[in-house]
Structure formats: structure tokens, C-alpha cells
Write a protein that binds this DNA or RNA. Structure first.
Length: 848
RNA sequence: GCCCAAGUGGCGGAAUGGUAGACGCAGGGGAUUCAAAAUCCCCCGCCCUUGCGGGCGUGUGGGUUCGACUCCCACCUUGGGCACCA
């Protein structure tokens, strides 16, 4: 009997698949297509266990769909632009391209042993000039269609390094290298008009039935549609009005101040004559641009001295404050503060001693607000106080509608639908990204590059010895003749956000070598992505940008109308986590230990060297600095790829985080060994036996259950069913032919998960051809129906007994049998039950 | 701060509103073995009980229901995102 040696069988079958060319996707009008895509990786150079999980999930789907007769497209490539390569260039002097392509080669080598069914003939990296050149062509198309424009926007500025920082590079309000306090600085930048599509992007979420509900909800909240009103407040200095946006105009009675953004034109105007205000505005610019930083910052205000009229009472004045929590990007950059019904306004009012006045009470509870704002849901009824519209008791919704009508009728405001979604700023002041293909000319202004000059390639001869973007100081790359007038001009040196690269790669995979961004024949056949698989961390930005980009591509003729929603189904996986082993060093700081240094006994952890106990922090995100990163390559070396694949799928539901444990991998390997020995034993069997029918029933039940589980991404449940079937088969006394049939079926059901082992068993059990090309087994419905059914009997909702009855026994008969049950008789003690509930085929509940 | 999600034995987890704990790990007992490894069999939520049996139990507190891990409300904890990390 041969032993299970993955190192021998895995390379063998990988070579066989390659020889047969079965993963190469071809357009086949005879067959339905299926496009399964995993979010492509950033080439860090190290394959992470999270990648293993992601690509194995996609691989199960790809292999299953192939067995189901689909023509499968399952491509792989590289999201290759980005900050890390530039940081490496700064640290080591190696060109980002060399760094990136080196990493790609390494990662590809690490991916090969996993046995994933990717079609590598379609591989590309977003930093290939052939790819980003097409992206530049689309940028020009977008420009022509008016989908791109320039405007001024804030960036994080490091005043010591004199450079723009990514949000990630701002730590506690300071630059990560210089440690200097970061400030916000204005730059003219390029924007995509995603906010023009806000309504469409929101409305179309309803159609994405095969997306997780939580992702749709997060996107909807991100787009943030609200109905409100723009209100006009007349300045007492006679210099016009300040327009505020409000979603709660019904609370106008409680308005006690106007707050405007530090960047509001009125603030700038007043600052010209008020140095203290100018200082305050400068103070507000401290800190990063991230919403988190702005929201968490201390709420600061400055009374400008300017007053506006209260719209409900011309004799009342409202002070105009500049406040750092008001965003110029949202609404009109000005709000009216109503402390009684907004917690932030209330905190602000208490801090600066501004009046607090209720606009409504809860019905029957006329209590003035103290330190907690009264903010009931808009659907709830409130008792308005002396309301300007005449309303008394009404819901917030009704109050808002009445208020909007009231203000509009008097010309004091205009109802407006507002979105939180902002236009997408794509300018990056960095080298390692797709160059924006425009030229700045003194006479012609911003001039698009000619398409025949694309791709505008990044130069090779650059150095990273000073901060900032080397393109800015590269004269031969930067200085070019104007494409329009031919006079000396300068290239745009900003590059595109890497999210642009990943917003259309799925479309490029359908025709990766096409001379245009896409080819009509190929997108018509292959789009849309039938199943997209990736991390939940991309739930908003990447997916929203991709949805926008697909719409824009459609308008420019690069995608058909059916593809404006490019991902038919989405699955978001959880993270792979690992325990952290920690002890305290001599200096009192934590010391992290590698899993290999630690021995586990009775749920406690000890250092192998010293025997000292260490602290275990379970289930933490893998992080290099915590020494808890598991290298998938070592698992593959030790147990084989099938074990790694089986384990990442087995324990946890794919959407949830999974903790990597050495014991779990060991267990997975043990089980595969068991399946192997079972197969070897069955291969040598001869003759008839008993219980063939039972084994076949169990087999069909397993086919049914595993198929259903795969269809619903319940891979852990599918694997549990396969464990159970292994136990059944192991104990079966059925004849040799039946056992062999059961074993072949098991191999088929396991093939998407452990394809190498499945091939080997298939070959040894006399299966024809490659299991990877064999059709999926079908469950016989007749074999799934049981003659009898066991019903639990509950007394007052607690399980107390059970009865086994014929499947189609009438309700009356079941009732009779249930009442005759010993446990029920004892509980009833001669009384009649209050109620008797029979759910046919499920349960009986006797209520006493 | 805001948005979203998740919390079930010692552990990972299973369960269309219908037997809570499938399947696996760890643990205990046994078989096999000169011995060990490997393999196989049995037990395994907590508490009370010799046993039969009973009580409690799905983060916490309420609610809906004949029946709630599942639905509703509030809270706690952990994780993801917050527009220049990818």
C-alpha cells in the first residue's frame, strides 16, 4: 500500500494540468461562460496566508464551475503601483520597477505550488506600460466627455520634509519620518466626477442581489443621500447672505449660531481685516486631512463678530462662528447650530456659552435639554413648541417637510437633495504611478497628450535621494513641446491614485493584449464578473470606484451597457489571524516570540528554550512587528498544498476571520492521510458485501449537501459533510464495486478543495481522464427521501421525548401518537393540553 | 467621532423561527504494540443526582412567540472602513 506523499503527487498533477491546458480560458459560444475573479494582489514579494485563503476560495468556485460545464475565466495579475516600491527606492536606491518586477517573480514562484487554476496566459501588472498606456487613453476619453476636471483640494503637508504625505504616513498628527506637525495645504488636483453618479450608484445597489447586504449598506451610507434645504441668512453688515445647508430646518426655533468652515469664503474675507481670525484659521489647518482626524480633533470655534438675522424673527441676531468641525466639502460649508437637537452643537454651545433652546419636546415630557441633545429618530412623533408652520404633534419627517415648504414659500430657502459622496481626487504627488497624460502650456493652458504618443512612460533615470516626486526635477522627462502649439511646455508630474489601476483590471483581463483598453467581442462574451472574491476592507472604496469606472467606460464605448455593474456576485472573506506570544523584556517593553519558539501545553504557552510561560493573545491580525505571521510556504513544504488548502477552508465560514493554528493544519493533514489510506484499502478490495443501499444513500445525500454548500459559499460546511462521509465509508461493509463508486464520488467532491489528492485517487480508482475535466456528480432525488422521520416532542418548548413515524403520517395520527408518549402522559397527568402544535416533518410541541 | 459587522463548550465552529453544540481540535478511557509512533473504538457544555432524572445555558438586560443562537429595542466587547495604505 503506497503512502500519501504530497511532494510527489502535487507537482505531477500540476504538470498534467498544464500539459492539458485546461485552465486556459477560450471563448466558446457552445458553452455558458463563468468569470471568477479574486482581488489581485499587491506584489509585496511574500505570499501571505490571506492570499492563500482568497485564491483558494476563488479556486473552489472556478474548479466547481468547470466541472459544471462552464467555460471558466480565472485570471491573475498584479496591482503593482504604489507607495511601498517608492519607499524601498528611498531606502535602498533600487528603481521601483526593478523592485516591483522582482517581487512579482518571487510571488509567482510562491504561488505555483498551490495548485490554483489560474490562467496565467492573461497575466499583467498595472505598472506594465501596455496596461497604464490604455489607462491614459481612457483618461483622455474621460477628459473629452467632461468626466475629469481640476480643482483645488487639501493634502497633508509635512513642513520639514517639504512633501505631501499619505494619510497612512500621518501618525498622531505628525509626519512619520520627520515627526513634524502635519498641516493641510491646498493644491490644484485632478478629479473624477463620481458625485454626478451618486444617485445612480445608490439606486443600482438594489439590483446587486448577490452582494452582501452589509456591503450595500456601507456603500449607501457612504454615498449618504439626504434631503434638506439651503437657507439664506442675511448678513447684518449688509454684505449679502450666508447660505447654510440643513437637514433639520424644523428645528430653526432652536438655532443659536451659524458655523462656517475655516475655508469658507466669508471666513477668508473676514480674516483679511481680523488677524486673530487669520491665526485661528491657520490653527485649524493643523493636523491631517483624514475624516477621522478632523472628527476626533477638539472642537474649536471663533466668534467673527459678524451677525445674521434669524429667519423666523428679524429682531433676533445669530452670531457667525468659524468652527473647525464644519467641512467645506459638504453642503455649503456653513450650518446653523441647534444645540438642543445636535450633540456636537450642544457641546460647542456649552463650551462657548451659547444659548440652548428646544424646538420640540418628546410628547408629554416638556423638559429642556441640559447636556444631552434630544435627537429622536425622524420617524418618531415629537411635540413642537410654538412652531412656525403651525404644527403641534408630528413626526420629525413631517416637521422637516412642512418646514421646507414654509421656507420655500417665503423665499427664505430652497429644498435640496445632498450627497455625502465627494468627487474622486486622483492626483498623487508621487513617482510610482500612472502618469497623467496632459501637458501644461503657458499659452494653451492644460493640453491633453495626443493618443498616438501614449503610453507616456515613467523614466528609468531617476533618483530618490531627496524628498518629493523625482518627476518634478527630471528636466528631459518633464520638459516637452506643447502638443497643441509646439512651444516649450511641461508635463503634468502628478500620477494617478492606484485605485484607478484597480478600477478596470477586471475588464482588461478579458482581452489583456488588446490594442485598445478592451475588445468588444471579449467583453461581450466574458463580462460581467460572475463571482468576485476579496477582502471586506475593500467594501467601500475599491468597489465604489470600480462601479463608477465601469459607468464611465461604458459612456466612452469601452464596456457594454450590461457591464455598468461589473460584478454580478460579490463574496467578502474574513482575515486569517494568529495568536501573539508575548512576554515582558528587561526594559519592561513587550517582546514578541515566533510560534516556532513556543510550545503549547494545556492551553498555555511556554518558551522552548527557557521553559518560561508567555502570554497568549488569541486571534490577532498578522503583523510582522508582532512576529505572528505564518508563512504559507512552510506549511506547503511540510504538509503539501492540499493540506494548506483544506485547512484554510475547513474550520471557519469564509466570511469570518479564521485563526491559523498549527494543530489545525496537523489535523487537516491527518484527515487527508486517512482518506488516502481508505482509498488504498478500497482499491484492493474484491467481492460483494452488505449495506450497499445504505452507502449509496449516504453518497447521494453527501453529493446533495456538498453541492448546496459550495453553491452558497459554505465551504466549511461542505468539508464537514466530507468528514462525515469519510467516517461512513470507513465503516461500510458494502461490496467492492459500491465502495469504489463511493470513493470516486468522494474524490470528485473533494476535487475543488484538494485537487491533487483527488486526481491521484481518481486515477487509482480507475477514473477516466483528469478529474479536473470530469463532470460534477449528480444526486439522485429518489435516493434522498427517507421513509420515516424522527420528530422531537417538546413540552412547553423543551425537548422531552421523540417519536419515529412514517414520513407522510397524517397530522391527526401524529397528535395521537404524541399524546400517547410516556413523557407527555407523565407531564399531562390526566389533564388535556392547552395547545398542541404539530409542524409536519419537523416537531411536536405540547403546551400545558 | 461617524458607518458596518461579529460575539455559541477548553478551542475553531454547526443549526430554512422548530432536538443548541453537526464536523474538527484539545482532553479522558480503552484496543493494538515488547515499547513507542501511527491507527482504531468509546466518552466529552456547566451544575445537582449512585442511577433514573432534573436545573441552567448561544456577550449583557428587556421584549415578541406555542417555541428565539435566529426577530425587535437598549447596552458591552472585539474587528473592518473613514476618501492619499492596498
Amino acid at each position: 500500500m503506497a503512502r500519501y506523499i504530497p511532494a510527489e503527487i502535487e507537482p505531477k498533477w500540476q504538470a498534467a494540468w498544464q500539459e492539458a491546458g485546461i485552465f486556459r480560458a477560450e471563448r466558446d459560444p457552445q458553452r455558458p461562460k463563468y468569470y471568477v475573479l479574486e482581488m489581485f494582489p499587491y506584489p509585496s514579494g511574500r505570499l501571505h496566508i490571506g492570499h492563500v485563503r482568497n485564491y483558494t476560495l476563488g479556486d473552489v468556485v472556478a474548479r466547481y464551475k468547470a466541472a459544471r460545464g462552464f467555460s471558466v475565466l480565472h485570471p491573475m495579475g498584479w496591482d503593482a503601483f504604489g507607495l511601498p516600491a517608492e519607499n524601498a527606492a528611498i531606502a535602498t536606491g533600487v528603481h521601483p520597477a526593478d523592485h516591483t518586477y522582482g517581487n512579482i517573480a518571487e510571488m509567482k514562484e510562491q504561488m505555483a505550488p498551490m495548485g490554483w487554476s489560474h490562467d496565467w496566459s492573461r497575466e499583467f501588472a498595472t505598472c506594465d506600460p501596455e496596461y497604464y498606456g490604455q489607462q491614459q487613453a481612457m483618461f483622455l476619453d474621460f477628459l473629452e466627455k467632461g468626466l475629469v476636471y481640476r480643482k483645488s483640494a487639501m493634502v497633508n503637508w509635512d513642513p520639514v520634509d517639504m512633501t505631501v504625505l499619505a494619510n497612512e504616513q500621518v501618525i498622531d498628527g505628525r509626519g512619520w519620518r520627520s515627526g513634524a506637525e502635519v498641516e493641510r495645504r491646498e493644491l490644484t488636483q485632478w478629479f473624477f466626477r463620481i458625485s454626478d453618479y451618486a444617485e445612480d450608484l445608490l439606486a443600482a445597489l438594489d439590483g446587486l442581489e448577490n452582494w452582501p447586504e452589509k456591503v450595500r449598506l456601507m456603500q449607501a451610507n457612504w454615498i449618504g443621500k439626504s434631503r434638506g434645504i439651503e437657507l439664506y441668512f442675511q448678513r447684518r453688515d449688509g454684505a449679502g447672505e450666508i447660505v447654510c445647508y440643513s437637514t433639520r430646518p424644523d428645528t430653526m426655533r432652536g438655532a443659536s449660531f451659524i458655523a462656517i468652515a475655516p475655508d469658507h469664503p466669508v471666513a477668508r474675507e473676514l480674516a483679511e481685516k481680523d488677524p486673530a481670525l487669520a491665526d485661528f484659521i491657520a490653527e485649524c489647518r493643523k493636523g491631517g486631512t483624514s475624516e477621522e482626524a478632523i472628527e476626533k480633533a477638539e472642537k474649536l470655534g471663533y466668534d467673527t463678530g459678524l451677525r445674521v438675522a434669524h429667519p423666523l424673527d428679524d429682531t433676533r441676531d445669530l452670531p457667525v462662528w468659524v468652527a473647525n468641525f464644519v467641512l467645506m466639502d459638504y453642503g455649503t460649508g456653513a450650518v446653523f447650530g441647534c444645540p438642543a437637537h445636535d450633540q456636537r452643537d450642544l457641546d460647542f454651545a456649552r463650551k462657548y456659552d451659547l444659548p440652548v433652546q428646544n424646538a420640540f419636546y418628546l410628547p408629554g415630557q416638556p423638559v429642556e435639554v441640559e447636556n444631552e441633545a434630544l435627537v429622536p429618530p425622524k420617524s418618531e412623533k415629537v411635540a413642537y413648541i410654538d412652531h412656525f408652520t403651525g404644527l403641534e404633534e408630528a413626526t420629525g419627517e413631517e416637521g422637516i417637510n412642512a418646514a421646507i415648504d414654509w421656507f420655500e414659500a417665503r423665499g427664505l430657502g430652497k429644498g435640496k437633495v445632498q450627497y455625502r459622496l465627494r468627487d474622486w481626487g486622483i492626483s498623487r504627488q508621487r513617482f510610482w504611478g500612472c502618469p497623467i497624460p496632459v501637458v501644461h502650456c503657458k499659452s494653451c493652458g492644460v493640453v491633453p497628450e495626443k493618443k498616438e504618443n501614449l503610453p507616456i512612460e515613467l523614466p528609468r533615470d531617476v533618483t530618490f535621494d531627496q524628498p518629493g516626486n523625482p518627476l518634478d526635477r527630471h528636466p528631459t522627462w518633464r520638459d516637452v513641446p506643447c502638443p497643441a502649439c509646439g512651444k516649450p511646455a511641461q508635463r503634468e508630474t502628478d500620477t494617478m491614485d492606484t485605485f484607478v489601476d484597480s478600477s478596470w483590471y477586471y475588464a482588461r483581463f478579458t482581452a489583456p493584449r488588446a490594442a485598445t483598453p478592451t475588445s468588444a467581442e471579449d467583453v461581450d462574451y466574458w463580462m460581467n464578473v460572475d463571482q468576485y472574491v476579496g477582502g471586506i476592507e475593500h467594501a467601500i472604496l475599491h468597489l465604489l470606484y470600480s462601479r463608477f469606472f465601469a459607468r464611465a467606460m461604458h459612456e466612452c464605448g469601452h464596456l457594454p451597457a450590461k457591464s455598468v455593474e461589473p460584478f454580478d456576485a460579490l463574496f467578502t472573506q474574513g482575515m486569517v489571524t494568529h495568536a501573539i506570544y508575548m512576554s515582558e523584556g528587561e526594559d519592561g517593553r513587550p517582546v514578541y516570540h515566533y510560534p516556532e519558539e513556543v510550545e503549547l501545553r494545556d492551553g498555555r504557552a511556554f518558551l522552548r528554550e527557557s521553559g518560561n510561560e508567555v502570554q497568549v493573545i488569541p486571534s490577532a491580525k498578522m503583523s510582522k512587528s508582532k512576529n505572528n505571521v505564518v508563512d504559507p510556504l512552510r506549511i506547503v513544504e511540510r504538509y503539501g498544498a492540499d493540506t494548506a488548502r483544506w485547512f484554510v477552508l475547513s474550520d471557519s465560514p469564509p466570511e469570518r476571520d479564521v485563526e491559523w493554528t498549527a494543530a489545525g493544519a496537523e489535523a487537516a493533514h491527518k484527515h487527508l492521510g486517512r482518506v488516502w489510506s481508505l482509498s488504498e484499502r478500497i482499491a484492493g478490495m474484491e467481492g460483494a458485501g452488505s449495506g450497499d443501499e445504505d452507502l449509496l444513500r449516504a453518497m447521494h445525500k453527501t453529493i446533495h449537501d456538498v453541492t448546496m454548500a459550495i453553491e452558497s459559499f459554505g465551504f466549511n460546511a461542505a468539508i464537514a459533510r466530507l468528514y462525515a462521509f469519510t467516517n461512513t465509508l470507513q465503516k461500510s461493509k458494502a461490496g467492492a464495486d459500491t465502495q469504489r463508486q463511493a470513493m470516486r464520488t468522494m474524490a470528485q467532491l473533494m476535487a475543488p478543495f484538494t485537487p491533487h489528492l483527488a486526481e491521484e485517487i481518481w486515477a487509482r480508482q480507475g477514473g477516466e481522464g483528469l478529474i479536473a475535466s470530469a463532470p460534477w456528480p449528480e444526486a439522485d432525488p429518489a435516493m434522498l427521501v427517507e421513509d420515516t422521520v424522527t420528530l422531537p416532542i417538546q413540552i412547553n418548548g423543551k425537548r422531552r421525548s421523540e417519536i419515529t413515524v412514517a414520513r407522510d403520517l397524517s397530522r391527526e395520527e401524529v397528535e395521537k401518537l404524541a399524546l400517547a408518549d410516556q413523557a407527555v402522559e407523565r407531564a399531562l397527568d390526566g389533564q388535556a393540553p392547552k395547545k398542541l402544535i404539530v409542524v409536519p416533518g419537523r416537531i411536536v410541541n405540547v403546551v400545558i
